[in-house]
Amino acid sequence: MITLTVNGDDRRIDADPDMPLLWALRENLGLPGTKFSCGVGMCGACMVLVDGIAMPSCVVQLGSVDGAVVTTIEGVAADGVLSPVQQAWIDEQVPQCGYCQSGMIVAATALLAENPRPSDRDIDAAITNICRCGTYPRVRRAIHRAAEAATGSGGDGR
């Protein structure tokens, strides 16, 4: 039995400890916002925060995170209020197909937690998620926008 705190709730999962966290979230806990795409930890569609750190959940074994605090896309908004990143995503109309966007938003959330005013270069280094629809220019704009909203100043931080 694995115990996790997921989006603030204590959850117990009876599953193979070798199973990736991704499938536990999607199938055992009914949280399908975290997406499967490459299965090898490269594309970022499955990113979640594990103890505050963005990780590709498709290569994180369930047994290795026993007791961890996990935040998925479903837990990014607090009490139904969109986070600054999510709001910036809407304001910049970032998603197209939307499939990679859960992971993008989680990755951006982690970046801004660590670096509240990232430069373009910081964004280049931190956001390695793959988007096939080509939302990258808008992702970049939305991260700057979220940074401005959260830090409340007018400079663009680039």
Binding site: P32, K35, V76, W89, I90, P95, G98
Partner: peptide, 16 residues
């Protein structure tokens, strides 16, 4: 876009 809000909260349901 009408589909965007659900795509930033993880509520959008894809085939998978």
């Amino acid at each position: 876009r009408l589909d965007v809000p659900a795509k930033v909260t993880g509520e959008a349901i894809f085939g998978i």
